[in-house]
Write a protein that binds this DNA or RNA. Structure first.
Lengths: 210, 210
DNA sequence: TAGATTGTTAATCGATTAACAATC
DNA sequence: TAGATTGTTAATCGATTAACAATC
Protein backbone atom coordinates (compact mmCIF):
# COMPACT_ATOMS: atom_id res chain seq x y z
CA UNK A 1 0.00 0.00 0.00
CA UNK A 2 2.74 2.44 0.99
CA UNK A 3 4.92 4.20 -1.55
CA UNK A 4 7.69 5.85 0.46
CA UNK A 5 10.87 3.93 1.10
CA UNK A 6 10.75 2.65 4.66
CA UNK A 7 14.05 2.11 6.41
CA UNK A 8 15.15 -1.32 7.45
CA UNK A 9 15.27 -0.26 11.11
CA UNK A 10 11.57 0.65 11.00
CA UNK A 11 10.55 -2.62 9.33
CA UNK A 12 12.49 -4.60 11.92
CA UNK A 13 10.52 -2.90 14.72
CA UNK A 14 7.11 -3.65 13.23
CA UNK A 15 6.90 -7.29 14.42
CA UNK A 16 7.85 -6.12 17.91
CA UNK A 17 4.91 -3.69 17.91
CA UNK A 18 2.70 -6.43 16.56
CA UNK A 19 3.66 -8.91 19.27
CA UNK A 20 3.17 -6.32 21.98
CA UNK A 21 -0.21 -5.15 20.65
CA UNK A 22 -1.33 -8.77 20.61
CA UNK A 23 -0.55 -9.01 24.33
CA UNK A 24 -2.30 -5.70 25.04
CA UNK A 25 -5.36 -6.90 23.12
CA UNK A 26 -5.38 -10.16 25.07
CA UNK A 27 -5.34 -8.09 28.25
CA UNK A 28 -8.37 -6.13 27.03
CA UNK A 29 -6.56 -2.83 26.47
CA UNK A 30 -8.49 -0.69 23.96
CA UNK A 31 -6.27 2.31 23.53
CA UNK A 32 -2.57 3.08 23.88
CA UNK A 33 -0.59 6.31 23.51
CA UNK A 34 2.75 6.53 21.75
CA UNK A 35 4.20 7.43 25.12
CA UNK A 36 2.88 4.33 26.88
CA UNK A 37 3.85 2.06 24.00
CA UNK A 38 7.34 3.56 23.93
CA UNK A 39 7.85 2.94 27.64
CA UNK A 40 6.62 -0.63 27.35
CA UNK A 41 8.97 -1.38 24.46
CA UNK A 42 11.99 0.65 25.53
CA UNK A 43 11.69 3.18 22.72
CA UNK A 44 10.82 6.90 22.58
CA UNK A 45 7.35 8.26 21.85
CA UNK A 46 8.75 10.18 18.87
CA UNK A 47 10.16 7.03 17.40
CA UNK A 48 6.87 5.18 17.80
CA UNK A 49 4.94 7.95 16.04
CA UNK A 50 7.57 8.28 13.30
CA UNK A 51 7.49 4.53 12.73
CA UNK A 52 3.72 4.35 12.32
CA UNK A 53 3.62 7.45 10.15
CA UNK A 54 5.85 5.75 7.61
CA UNK A 55 2.74 3.78 6.69
CA UNK A 56 0.01 6.34 7.36
CA UNK A 57 -1.76 7.98 10.28
CA UNK A 58 -3.24 5.27 12.46
CA UNK A 59 -3.78 7.37 15.58
CA UNK A 60 -6.28 9.90 16.80
CA UNK A 61 -5.12 13.20 18.29
CA UNK A 62 -5.93 13.63 21.93
CA UNK A 63 -6.68 9.94 22.30
CA UNK A 64 -3.88 7.70 21.07
CA UNK A 65 -3.96 4.51 19.04
CA UNK A 66 -6.76 1.97 18.98
CA UNK A 67 -5.00 -1.28 19.88
CA UNK A 68 -7.19 -3.52 17.74
CA UNK A 69 -7.07 -1.26 14.71
CA UNK A 70 -3.32 -0.64 14.97
CA UNK A 71 -2.61 -4.33 15.30
CA UNK A 72 -4.68 -5.09 12.22
CA UNK A 73 -2.88 -2.36 10.27
CA UNK A 74 0.53 -3.76 11.18
CA UNK A 75 -0.71 -7.25 10.36
CA UNK A 76 -1.59 -6.00 6.91
CA UNK A 77 1.68 -4.07 6.47
CA UNK A 78 3.70 -7.17 7.36
CA UNK A 79 1.44 -9.19 5.02
CA UNK A 80 0.93 -11.86 7.68
CA UNK A 81 -2.82 -11.64 7.12
CA UNK A 82 -2.35 -13.75 3.98
CA UNK A 83 -1.93 -17.51 3.54
CA UNK A 84 1.39 -18.94 2.35
CA UNK A 85 2.45 -22.40 1.23
CA UNK A 86 5.96 -23.42 2.19
CA UNK A 87 8.42 -26.26 1.67
CA UNK A 88 11.36 -27.26 3.85
CA UNK A 89 14.57 -28.17 2.04
CA UNK A 90 16.70 -30.37 4.28
CA UNK A 91 14.84 -32.88 6.46
CA UNK A 92 17.44 -32.95 9.25
CA UNK A 93 17.02 -31.72 12.81
CA UNK A 94 16.28 -28.10 12.10
CA UNK A 95 14.04 -28.93 9.15
CA UNK A 96 12.10 -31.38 11.30
CA UNK A 97 11.78 -28.91 14.16
CA UNK A 98 10.52 -26.19 11.83
CA UNK A 99 7.99 -28.62 10.37
CA UNK A 100 6.66 -29.61 13.78
CA UNK A 101 6.68 -26.09 15.14
CA UNK A 102 3.10 -24.88 15.19
CA UNK A 103 3.82 -21.16 15.42
CA UNK A 104 3.89 -20.62 11.66
CA UNK A 105 0.82 -22.68 10.71
CA UNK A 106 -1.30 -20.49 12.97
CA UNK A 107 0.13 -17.39 11.29
CA UNK A 108 -0.96 -18.69 7.88
CA UNK A 109 2.29 -20.35 6.78
CA UNK A 110 1.57 -23.93 5.78
CA UNK A 111 4.39 -26.39 5.26
CA UNK A 112 3.25 -28.86 2.61
CA UNK A 113 6.36 -30.96 1.96
CA UNK A 114 10.03 -31.51 2.80
CA UNK A 115 12.93 -32.28 0.48
CA UNK A 116 16.18 -34.14 1.01
CA UNK A 117 18.97 -35.95 -0.81
CA UNK A 118 19.16 -38.86 1.66
CA UNK A 119 17.44 -41.98 0.21
CA UNK A 120 16.74 -43.15 3.78
CA UNK A 121 14.62 -40.07 4.44
CA UNK A 122 12.90 -39.81 1.05
CA UNK A 123 9.47 -41.45 1.20
CA UNK A 124 9.11 -40.96 4.94
CA UNK A 125 6.90 -38.30 6.52
CA UNK A 126 7.49 -35.54 9.09
CA UNK A 127 4.39 -34.36 10.91
CA UNK A 128 2.34 -36.00 8.11
CA UNK A 129 4.19 -34.01 5.43
CA UNK A 130 5.99 -36.14 2.82
CA UNK A 131 9.79 -36.07 2.43
CA UNK A 132 10.47 -35.89 -1.31
CA UNK A 133 13.57 -36.24 -3.47
CA UNK A 134 15.32 -32.89 -3.91
CA UNK A 135 15.64 -33.72 -7.62
CA UNK A 136 11.97 -32.85 -8.01
CA UNK A 137 12.26 -29.56 -6.10
CA UNK A 138 11.89 -27.11 -9.00
CA UNK A 139 9.04 -29.00 -10.64
CA UNK A 140 7.16 -29.28 -7.34
CA UNK A 141 7.43 -25.51 -6.74
CA UNK A 142 6.04 -24.83 -10.23
CA UNK A 143 3.27 -27.44 -9.98
CA UNK A 144 2.08 -26.37 -6.53
CA UNK A 145 2.82 -22.65 -6.80
CA UNK A 146 4.81 -22.65 -3.56
CA UNK A 147 5.35 -19.27 -1.89
CA UNK A 148 8.15 -19.79 0.61
CA UNK A 149 11.23 -22.03 0.52
CA UNK A 150 12.78 -22.80 3.89
CA UNK A 151 16.44 -23.79 3.63
CA UNK A 152 17.62 -26.06 6.43
CA UNK A 153 20.27 -27.84 4.36
CA UNK A 154 24.07 -27.77 4.62
CA UNK A 155 25.90 -24.50 4.04
CA UNK A 156 27.68 -25.74 0.91
CA UNK A 157 24.44 -26.36 -1.02
CA UNK A 158 22.32 -23.52 0.37
CA UNK A 159 23.05 -20.95 -2.34
CA UNK A 160 22.45 -23.35 -5.22
CA UNK A 161 19.19 -24.50 -3.62
CA UNK A 162 18.14 -20.86 -3.37
CA UNK A 163 19.03 -20.28 -7.03
CA UNK A 164 17.04 -23.27 -8.17
CA UNK A 165 14.03 -22.29 -6.05
CA UNK A 166 14.13 -18.69 -7.28
CA UNK A 167 14.36 -20.01 -10.84
CA UNK A 168 11.28 -22.13 -10.25
CA UNK A 169 9.29 -19.09 -9.18
CA UNK A 170 9.37 -19.20 -5.39
CA UNK A 171 8.32 -15.86 -3.82
CA UNK A 172 10.71 -15.75 -0.87
CA UNK A 173 13.43 -17.70 0.91
CA UNK A 174 13.83 -18.25 4.63
CA UNK A 175 17.37 -19.44 5.17
CA UNK A 176 18.73 -21.25 8.23
CA UNK A 177 22.06 -22.28 6.70
CA UNK A 178 25.06 -20.26 7.95
CA UNK A 179 25.56 -18.27 4.74
CA UNK A 180 24.10 -15.00 3.54
CA UNK A 181 21.99 -16.14 0.61
CA UNK A 182 21.78 -13.71 -2.32
CA UNK A 183 18.77 -13.99 -4.60
CA UNK A 184 16.52 -12.10 -6.95
CA UNK A 185 13.64 -12.93 -4.60
CA UNK A 186 13.39 -11.65 -0.98
CA UNK A 187 15.54 -13.56 1.51
CA UNK A 188 15.58 -13.64 5.30
CA UNK A 189 18.64 -15.21 6.85
CA UNK A 190 18.30 -16.63 10.37
CA UNK A 191 21.81 -16.85 11.76
CA UNK A 192 21.71 -18.90 14.94
CA UNK A 193 25.49 -18.87 15.11
CA UNK A 194 25.58 -15.06 14.94
CA UNK A 195 23.03 -14.89 17.70
CA UNK A 196 24.80 -17.26 20.09
CA UNK A 197 28.16 -15.61 19.43
CA UNK A 198 26.68 -12.20 20.20
CA UNK A 199 25.58 -13.73 23.49
CA UNK A 200 29.03 -15.11 24.30
CA UNK A 201 30.49 -11.72 23.36
CA UNK A 202 28.25 -10.00 25.90
CA UNK A 203 29.01 -12.64 28.54
CA UNK A 204 32.73 -12.18 27.95
CA UNK A 205 32.47 -8.39 28.12
CA UNK A 206 30.38 -8.64 31.30
CA UNK A 207 33.12 -10.57 33.06
CA UNK A 208 35.70 -7.87 32.32
CA UNK A 209 33.47 -4.89 33.13
CA UNK A 210 31.95 -6.15 36.38
CA UNK B 1 40.39 -6.94 26.17
CA UNK B 2 38.98 -3.82 24.55
CA UNK B 3 37.92 -0.80 26.60
CA UNK B 4 36.09 1.50 24.20
CA UNK B 5 32.36 1.14 23.81
CA UNK B 6 31.71 -0.71 20.58
CA UNK B 7 28.45 -0.03 18.81
CA UNK B 8 25.84 -2.72 18.45
CA UNK B 9 26.03 -2.50 14.65
CA UNK B 10 29.74 -3.38 14.75
CA UNK B 11 29.24 -6.33 17.11
CA UNK B 12 26.46 -7.69 14.89
CA UNK B 13 28.83 -7.70 11.92
CA UNK B 14 31.60 -9.60 13.69
CA UNK B 15 30.06 -13.08 13.30
CA UNK B 16 29.57 -12.37 9.60
CA UNK B 17 33.28 -11.62 9.24
CA UNK B 18 34.07 -14.71 11.24
CA UNK B 19 31.94 -16.98 9.06
CA UNK B 20 33.42 -15.52 5.91
CA UNK B 21 37.01 -15.78 7.13
CA UNK B 22 36.36 -19.42 7.98
CA UNK B 23 35.36 -20.05 4.36
CA UNK B 24 38.40 -18.13 3.06
CA UNK B 25 40.66 -20.17 5.33
CA UNK B 26 39.08 -23.41 4.11
CA UNK B 27 39.84 -22.25 0.57
CA UNK B 28 43.48 -21.69 1.50
CA UNK B 29 43.42 -17.89 1.27
CA UNK B 30 46.25 -16.41 3.38
CA UNK B 31 45.66 -12.70 3.07
CA UNK B 32 42.73 -10.43 2.36
CA UNK B 33 42.46 -6.65 1.94
CA UNK B 34 39.69 -4.57 3.47
CA UNK B 35 38.63 -3.82 -0.09
CA UNK B 36 38.28 -7.48 -1.10
CA UNK B 37 36.54 -8.40 2.15
CA UNK B 38 34.13 -5.49 1.72
CA UNK B 39 33.20 -6.57 -1.78
CA UNK B 40 32.67 -10.16 -0.70
CA UNK B 41 30.39 -9.13 2.16
CA UNK B 42 28.59 -6.21 0.54
CA UNK B 43 30.19 -3.58 2.79
CA UNK B 44 32.66 -0.74 2.18
CA UNK B 45 36.40 -0.99 2.77
CA UNK B 46 36.19 1.93 5.21
CA UNK B 47 33.57 0.15 7.24
CA UNK B 48 35.62 -3.03 7.40
CA UNK B 49 38.69 -1.15 8.63
CA UNK B 50 36.65 0.91 11.11
CA UNK B 51 35.06 -2.25 12.45
CA UNK B 52 38.34 -4.06 13.08
CA UNK B 53 39.95 -0.97 14.54
CA UNK B 54 37.34 -0.88 17.28
CA UNK B 55 39.24 -3.82 18.74
CA UNK B 56 42.78 -2.99 17.68
CA UNK B 57 44.96 -3.00 14.58
CA UNK B 58 44.92 -6.47 13.08
CA UNK B 59 46.20 -5.54 9.64
CA UNK B 60 49.49 -4.75 8.02
CA UNK B 61 49.90 -1.69 5.82
CA UNK B 62 50.62 -2.44 2.20
CA UNK B 63 49.58 -6.08 2.66
CA UNK B 64 46.15 -6.47 4.20
CA UNK B 65 44.86 -8.82 6.86
CA UNK B 66 46.18 -12.28 7.59
CA UNK B 67 43.08 -14.47 7.30
CA UNK B 68 44.11 -16.97 9.97
CA UNK B 69 45.19 -14.31 12.46
CA UNK B 70 42.14 -12.12 11.89
CA UNK B 71 39.80 -15.07 12.30
CA UNK B 72 41.45 -16.02 15.57
CA UNK B 73 41.23 -12.43 16.82
CA UNK B 74 37.49 -12.28 16.06
CA UNK B 75 37.05 -15.69 17.64
CA UNK B 76 38.59 -14.29 20.80
CA UNK B 77 36.59 -11.04 20.65
CA UNK B 78 33.33 -12.97 20.34
CA UNK B 79 34.54 -15.26 23.16
CA UNK B 80 33.63 -18.35 21.14
CA UNK B 81 37.08 -19.78 21.83
CA UNK B 82 35.86 -20.72 25.31
CA UNK B 83 33.80 -23.70 26.52
CA UNK B 84 30.26 -23.16 27.81
CA UNK B 85 27.79 -25.43 29.57
CA UNK B 86 24.15 -24.91 28.67
CA UNK B 87 20.71 -26.13 29.63
CA UNK B 88 17.53 -26.12 27.57
CA UNK B 89 14.34 -25.07 29.37
CA UNK B 90 11.33 -26.46 27.52
CA UNK B 91 11.73 -29.93 26.02
CA UNK B 92 9.23 -29.36 23.17
CA UNK B 93 9.98 -29.23 19.46
CA UNK B 94 12.35 -26.29 19.46
CA UNK B 95 14.09 -27.43 22.62
CA UNK B 96 14.59 -30.88 21.12
CA UNK B 97 15.86 -29.46 17.84
CA UNK B 98 18.35 -27.22 19.60
CA UNK B 99 19.55 -30.17 21.66
CA UNK B 100 20.11 -32.36 18.59
CA UNK B 101 21.64 -29.57 16.55
CA UNK B 102 25.38 -30.17 16.42
CA UNK B 103 26.40 -26.67 15.41
CA UNK B 104 26.78 -25.40 18.95
CA UNK B 105 28.61 -28.38 20.44
CA UNK B 106 31.37 -27.93 17.89
CA UNK B 107 31.61 -24.26 18.83
CA UNK B 108 32.16 -25.17 22.48
CA UNK B 109 28.59 -24.89 23.74
CA UNK B 110 27.64 -28.11 25.49
CA UNK B 111 24.03 -28.84 26.37
CA UNK B 112 24.05 -30.96 29.52
CA UNK B 113 20.35 -31.21 30.44
CA UNK B 114 16.80 -30.18 29.55
CA UNK B 115 14.00 -29.03 31.84
CA UNK B 116 10.24 -29.25 31.52
CA UNK B 117 7.02 -29.18 33.56
CA UNK B 118 5.41 -32.13 31.74
CA UNK B 119 5.58 -35.33 33.89
CA UNK B 120 5.48 -37.39 30.68
CA UNK B 121 8.73 -35.82 29.50
CA UNK B 122 10.56 -35.67 32.84
CA UNK B 123 12.83 -38.69 33.22
CA UNK B 124 13.22 -39.22 29.48
CA UNK B 125 16.30 -38.25 27.49
CA UNK B 126 16.91 -36.15 24.38
CA UNK B 127 20.11 -36.91 22.51
CA UNK B 128 21.33 -38.67 25.69
CA UNK B 129 20.72 -35.56 27.82
CA UNK B 130 18.27 -36.03 30.71
CA UNK B 131 14.96 -34.16 30.87
CA UNK B 132 14.62 -32.91 34.45
CA UNK B 133 11.82 -31.34 36.49
CA UNK B 134 11.82 -27.56 36.12
CA UNK B 135 11.36 -27.33 39.91
CA UNK B 136 15.03 -28.18 40.31
CA UNK B 137 16.18 -25.60 37.73
CA UNK B 138 17.77 -23.06 40.08
CA UNK B 139 19.53 -25.64 42.21
CA UNK B 140 20.89 -27.42 39.13
CA UNK B 141 22.34 -24.18 37.76
CA UNK B 142 24.06 -23.50 41.09
CA UNK B 143 25.32 -27.07 41.54
CA UNK B 144 26.68 -27.43 38.01
CA UNK B 145 27.74 -23.82 37.45
CA UNK B 146 25.81 -23.58 34.18
CA UNK B 147 26.80 -20.75 31.82
CA UNK B 148 23.94 -20.44 29.34
CA UNK B 149 20.19 -20.93 29.74
CA UNK B 150 18.30 -21.60 26.52
CA UNK B 151 14.61 -20.74 26.81
CA UNK B 152 12.38 -22.76 24.47
CA UNK B 153 9.32 -22.65 26.73
CA UNK B 154 5.96 -20.90 26.28
CA UNK B 155 5.85 -17.12 26.06
CA UNK B 156 3.88 -16.72 29.29
CA UNK B 157 6.56 -18.33 31.46
CA UNK B 158 9.66 -17.13 29.62
CA UNK B 159 10.32 -14.00 31.69
CA UNK B 160 9.92 -15.76 35.04
CA UNK B 161 12.21 -18.58 33.89
CA UNK B 162 14.79 -15.96 32.93
CA UNK B 163 14.46 -14.29 36.33
CA UNK B 164 14.90 -17.56 38.18
CA UNK B 165 17.92 -18.52 36.06
CA UNK B 166 19.54 -15.10 36.51
CA UNK B 167 18.90 -15.41 40.24
CA UNK B 168 20.65 -18.77 40.28
CA UNK B 169 23.75 -17.27 38.68
CA UNK B 170 23.44 -18.12 35.00
CA UNK B 171 25.83 -16.04 32.83
CA UNK B 172 23.60 -15.47 29.83
CA UNK B 173 20.21 -16.28 28.34
CA UNK B 174 19.40 -17.36 24.80
CA UNK B 175 15.69 -16.86 24.34
CA UNK B 176 13.51 -18.46 21.65
CA UNK B 177 10.14 -17.52 23.20
CA UNK B 178 8.35 -14.65 21.40
CA UNK B 179 8.97 -12.03 24.09
CA UNK B 180 11.83 -9.62 24.66
CA UNK B 181 13.34 -10.96 27.86
CA UNK B 182 14.77 -8.35 30.22
CA UNK B 183 17.43 -9.49 32.66
CA UNK B 184 20.42 -8.39 34.69
CA UNK B 185 22.48 -10.90 32.70
CA UNK B 186 23.10 -10.67 28.94
CA UNK B 187 20.20 -11.87 26.78
CA UNK B 188 19.93 -12.71 23.10
CA UNK B 189 16.41 -12.99 21.76
CA UNK B 190 15.88 -15.10 18.64
CA UNK B 191 12.59 -14.00 17.15
CA UNK B 192 11.58 -16.47 14.47
CA UNK B 193 8.23 -14.76 14.11
CA UNK B 194 9.89 -11.39 13.47
CA UNK B 195 12.10 -12.99 10.88
CA UNK B 196 9.32 -14.72 8.93
CA UNK B 197 7.13 -11.63 9.07
CA UNK B 198 9.96 -9.50 7.69
CA UNK B 199 10.07 -12.02 4.84
CA UNK B 200 6.33 -11.82 4.15
CA UNK B 201 6.63 -8.02 4.30
CA UNK B 202 9.28 -8.09 1.58
CA UNK B 203 7.27 -10.57 -0.48
CA UNK B 204 4.19 -8.34 -0.19
CA UNK B 205 6.13 -5.22 -1.13
CA UNK B 206 7.73 -7.04 -4.09
CA UNK B 207 4.33 -7.83 -5.56
CA UNK B 208 3.29 -4.17 -5.49
CA UNK B 209 6.56 -2.75 -6.81
CA UNK B 210 7.16 -5.20 -9.66
C1' DT C 1 62.47 2.86 -3.14
C1' DA C 2 57.74 2.63 -5.08
C1' DG C 3 53.33 0.63 -4.53
C1' DA C 4 49.86 -0.83 -1.76
C1' DT C 5 46.98 -0.84 2.02
C1' DT C 6 46.20 0.08 6.70
C1' DG C 7 44.82 3.17 10.70
C1' DT C 8 42.62 7.32 11.72
C1' DT C 9 40.69 11.85 11.24
C1' DA C 10 37.23 14.63 8.89
C1' DA C 11 32.85 14.93 6.10
C1' DT C 12 28.51 13.09 5.01
C1' DC C 13 24.50 10.78 5.52
C1' DG C 14 20.62 8.75 7.84
C1' DA C 15 18.18 7.66 11.93
C1' DT C 16 16.66 9.18 16.32
C1' DT C 17 15.03 12.74 19.27
C1' DA C 18 12.90 17.13 20.29
C1' DA C 19 9.56 20.57 19.45
C1' DC C 20 5.27 22.27 18.23
C1' DA C 21 1.31 23.19 15.39
C1' DA C 22 -2.87 20.60 14.15
C1' DT C 23 -6.86 18.49 15.83
C1' DC C 24 -9.67 15.16 18.18
C1' DT D 1 -13.84 24.82 25.26
C1' DA D 2 -9.61 22.81 27.55
C1' DG D 3 -6.65 18.94 27.69
C1' DA D 4 -4.35 15.52 25.49
C1' DT D 5 -1.94 13.40 22.00
C1' DT D 6 -1.06 12.84 17.25
C1' DG D 7 1.40 14.06 12.79
C1' DT D 8 5.20 16.44 11.09
C1' DT D 9 9.01 19.56 10.72
C1' DA D 10 13.49 20.85 12.61
C1' DA D 11 17.64 19.68 15.54
C1' DT D 12 20.70 16.33 17.20
C1' DC D 13 23.16 12.42 17.39
C1' DG D 14 25.55 8.39 15.73
C1' DA D 15 27.02 5.49 12.06
C1' DT D 16 28.86 5.22 7.52
C1' DT D 17 31.78 6.96 3.98
C1' DA D 18 35.59 9.56 2.19
C1' DA D 19 40.20 11.18 2.45
C1' DC D 20 44.85 10.91 3.47
C1' DA D 21 48.95 10.49 6.22
C1' DA D 22 51.53 6.60 8.18
C1' DT D 23 54.01 2.61 7.17
C1' DC D 24 54.83 -2.03 5.68
Amino acid sequence: MEFRKVSDAVVKRMPRYYRHLKILEEHGVDCVSSNALAKQLGLTASQVRQDFNCFGGFGQQGYGYNVRKLRREIRSILAIDKEYSAIVVGAGNIGTAITYFGGFQEEGIHIVALFDVDPDLIGKAVNDKPVLDVKGLGQYIKDHDIDIGIITARRSVAQQLADSMAGAGIKGIWNFAPVDIVSKVPVENVHLFDSISNLTYKIGKNKITD
